[in-house]
Design a protein around this nucleic acid. Structure first.
Lengths: 123, 123
DNA sequence: TGTGCATATGTGCAACTGCTCATATGTTCA
DNA sequence: TGAACATATGAGCAGTTGCACATATGCACA
């Protein structure tokens, strides 16, 4: 905040670097980070979050996308709710889920881009 | 590669969106993505990768950082090697590990930033 | 070559995970 | 209210995971 904003660009990078170092030294922050990655590390959950990044969806729609039982979806949605990655709202009989965190979209994006390169670098 | 690289900027966002949609529809890519997130979802592995993002380190140095047995470190390093996230080179008796993927640094960064907000939003 | 340090690997185990099945809760509409 | 649909939850189980222990391999230097 109090830093002069117009130092050279290079200073900015350095600040960012220091900040990350501090985060890395903070056990709570590190643990929280692993929790997010854990949420994204399961195929079903990743598909749920990926689908939600394209727009809100009901449980049955998510079931379509993920190809597992309704129960499995609900269980995973619970986990995602508990970790504040999604929110739910009712719409009649349905329950509509949405992403609750912009970071998730960033992570999915970077993850997919990495994966696309790793899996098939060309065309 | 063959895509025209110089469409208008505004179109760029839309292309990016479409590209992500395609990735999400590709089971291989999605699976690869979950594999990366899985690598980052364990405390020990995250600490390893976080430490390496600050600079190359030997196994014993990583052991310091992570606070688990040497065996545990080596086992996790093997997993990370198998997934091409780190590379190893010998230096005398030591083996020095390095990050093998720029995306990993991005992911760690975004993950930590998210976690820092989630854990303690303010200063 | 042998001793000591650094790293790797095999094994077994306790803990965790994600799933299905069964069932409960909640909502709509006749 | 009761039938039909949508979602949530509890329980149990098979598969996986991360660890420590023991031990093997690799390297340096006397």
């Amino acid at each position: 905040m109090h830093k002069k904003k117009d130092d050279t660009m290079s200073d900015n990078d350095e600040n960012r670097r220091h900040l990350l170092d501090r985060y890395l030294a903070d056990d709570d922050v590190v643990y929280q980070a692993t929790q997010i990655f854990d949420a994204l590390s399961d195929l079903t959950r990743f598909r749920i979050l990926g689908a939600l990044s394209q727009g809100d969806k009901s449980v049955s729609e998510l079931q379509e996308v993920c190809g597992v039982s309704q129960s499995a979806i609900s269980h995973q949605l619970r986990l995602l709710r508990d970790r504040s990655l999604v929110t739910a709202r009712r719409d009649g009989q349905r329950v509509i889920y949405s992403l609750d965190d912009d970071h998730v979209t960033s992570l999915i994006t970077v993850g997919l881009e990495h994966a696309a390169e790793a899996a098939g670098p060309e065309e």
